[in-house]
Amino acid sequence: MYLATISRKPYCTDLNDSEWAILAAVIPLAKSGGHPRTTDMREVCKNQFTRTFHVALFTPKNT
């Protein structure tokens, strides 16, 4: 399980393994011939989801 391998507190926006399996299928592979990808794409997605969650949470609603 992914969450057991990371050394941080889990967040509500973390992807579980089944969610990541769906999302990983649409993320392009690293291009050949360049610098090898060293970034964990699962963490990139998690950070984007966290930012979106917090923007939605703290954006004032028009009433």
Rank of each mutant, 00 (worst) to 15 (best):
P28K: 11
R51F: 04
L23Y: 05
S18I: 06
N47G: 10
T50F: 09
G34V: 00
T63Q: 14
M41A: 11
R42T: 03
K31F: 05
A56W: 09
T63W: 15
I22T: 13
L15H: 03
T50Y: 06
N47V: 08
I6G: 14
H35I: 13
A30H: 00
R8N: 09
P10F: 00
A30D: 09
H35N: 15
V55C: 12
T5D: 09
D40H: 04
S18T: 05
L15A: 01
I6A: 14
F53N: 08
L23S: 07
T50P: 03
I6E: 08
K46L: 04
K9I: 14
Q48V: 15
A25D: 09
H35G: 15
R8Y: 10
K31L: 10
C45S: 07
A24R: 07
A25Q: 02
T52Y: 03
I22G: 06
Q48P: 00
K9Q: 14
L29H: 13
V26P: 02
Y11S: 15
R8F: 08
L57H: 06
R42D: 02
A56V: 07
K9Y: 08
L3N: 03
N62A: 14
N16E: 05
P60N: 06
T63A: 13
V44N: 01
A25T: 09
N16C: 01
E19M: 00
C12L: 13
R8K: 11
T38A: 07
A24E: 01
T39E: 12
T59E: 12
R8H: 07
M41E: 03
S32G: 05
G34S: 04
P10W: 04
I6K: 15
D14Y: 02
I22H: 07
T50W: 03
L29D: 12
L57D: 08
M1K: 13
W20A: 04
H54F: 10
C45N: 03
E19K: 01
S32L: 13
M41D: 10
R42G: 00
T5V: 13
Y11M: 15
N16W: 05
H35D: 12
I27P: 02
N47K: 15
Y11W: 11
G34Q: 02
T38V: 14
M41T: 09
K61G: 09
T52S: 12
F53D: 07
F49K: 03
T13V: 05
A24F: 01
N62M: 13
N16T: 09
A25G: 11
T52V: 14
T50V: 10
N16M: 01
S7H: 12
M41N: 08
T13N: 03
K31V: 06
R8I: 05
A4Y: 11
R42S: 07
K46T: 15
A4L: 13
L15P: 03
R51D: 10
M1R: 12
A56R: 06
T59K: 15
N16Y: 08
R8T: 00
K61V: 13
R37A: 14
A56D: 05
R42H: 06
V55H: 12
T13C: 02
A30M: 04
M1E: 06
D40K: 02
V55W: 15
C12S: 13
L29Q: 14
P28L: 04
A56I: 07
P28F: 01
L3D: 10
Q48T: 11
